[in-house]
Design a protein around this nucleic acid. Sequence first.
DNA 1: GAGGTTACTTTATGGTGTAAGGAGATAGCA
DNA 2: TGCTATCTCCTTACACCATAAAGTAACCTC
Lengths: 260, 260
Amino acid sequence: MVVYAAQGDPRRTMALLWRTESPDAERPGPKPGLSVELIVETALAIADAEGMAGLSMRAVGDTLGRTAMALYTYVPSKSELLDLMYDKVLAELPVSHDGDGWRADVTRWAEELWAFYLRHPWVLQISQARPVLGPNEYVVLEALVKILRRTGLGPVMLRRLVSALYSCVREPARTASEARQAEKATGQSDDEWWYARSAHLREVSPDFAERFPTLTWMEGEHAFRMEDETMSYLEQEAREAFELSLAVLLDGIEVSMKAE
Amino acid sequence: MVVYAAQGDPRRTMALLWRTESPDAERPGPKPGLSVELIVETALAIADAEGMAGLSMRAVGDTLGRTAMALYTYVPSKSELLDLMYDKVLAELPVSHDGDGWRADVTRWAEELWAFYLRHPWVLQISQARPVLGPNEYVVLEALVKILRRTGLGPVMLRRLVSALYSCVREPARTASEARQAEKATGQSDDEWWYARSAHLREVSPDFAERFPTLTWMEGEHAFRMEDETMSYLEQEAREAFELSLAVLLDGIEVSMKAE
DNA sequence: GAGGTTACTTTATGGTGTAAGGAGATAGCA
DNA sequence: TGCTATCTCCTTACACCATAAAGTAACCTC
């Protein structure tokens, strides 16, 4: 399921995200044994290791030697914790790209993002609707837009380009990371799985080649194309789709530039 | 969370998907009051109305006047039910496009898929890794590849194109549908939400314009661009990204055709 | 009618997020 | 010094979730 972040009290969330909390004056009560920072870090480690499905308030609490409920004194809810995790992990991405030209820089930006999503697959499960509006989200965006502005295109076009660029990284990255996760979760490699399934397929639909001739033609040299042994078939295909989409999109930008 | 379909016994699942179950001879025991077909239809209706989050075995059972456990005599698990739902709902998509040329046909194919995802947002939450391999999946794919084959491009290129085309529909469709779902779930429109949040943003980061000058420039005429009142800002942006990506990808195909 | 098979139910297990209320620690103030 | 407000953190509880196990009742074949 998709996880909707950003549902709680906006004021509190924003204060947490932008670290505008009041400086801790001398307050009554026991000293806090944890901190928002620590909780977010722990949650991040769990999400990276076990995926979104393995991230529960209990799991985070257990790792910190507390109960799940203890976390609620620091963080209003799991939704807010996800917001904070998201913003924190975004800090990994490079802040600026001042290279040899916009085309190379956009390519580098996309490659960084691709690698980022594969490192932190759970990020792709955080809904893009109602974005979190944390500082690092803006830092990453600012970096991309700064590159794109060098193309001389107008703001309306740039906004569309930004979305399109995100799309062409995110969707194939999702496929690739899901392929890896499925491998880890089932203990069966993509290729083993594909092999087993296609055997069943022949069994259940012996007339496959007649029913789907064009597909059969296209998938023809399926087996002969494994160039990179470190990637499963599915992951390799996703990677190629990413590269194609990106290249075509960049070509499209060049065409727009000349047209203006 | 992402839902991994296709996890159960492959043989059983495939038999259910391709309807190669043995014809029901006279068997002992009480007459079945339900059927796989009925269960799948009910589950589909629930998923369409309430989203993936509202789809539980209890919910399906309740709607049919049974307990959740009753479903397990028909369907091995929820995962398999999702497979069946997925394949069934795909039957909505058109089987062939024999129009005025490949470009118009691909565009129609993409538009149909876009509308389909917005009608059934839960479909986007079914993992693409380990695809279901039901008959309708292949029907839809065959339709697309048949159009693309008319470009004269080779199978390797076509495979990449298929993935790229799916990407450029799926990711923005996901954003658009999440925007709608968020609206329904929170009772707050995208635009209201955006307005409230940006107020908080100004409060929490008064120096926003200095920290993110390029972003501020790009978002400048934000409010003046609402062309279509039936769509929220986010949905409109997603729609535009989709149209841009598609157009650029189609242009890219034409370039490849000339190059060959 | 007996026996086996099937549809469906009840009950139970271990998981989730989180509301409610309570225990104990610590500060400021009397 | 003690009172009290406030804090951290715990236990308990609730409403969900998928599904395993076992029981009941209907139905067919022999």
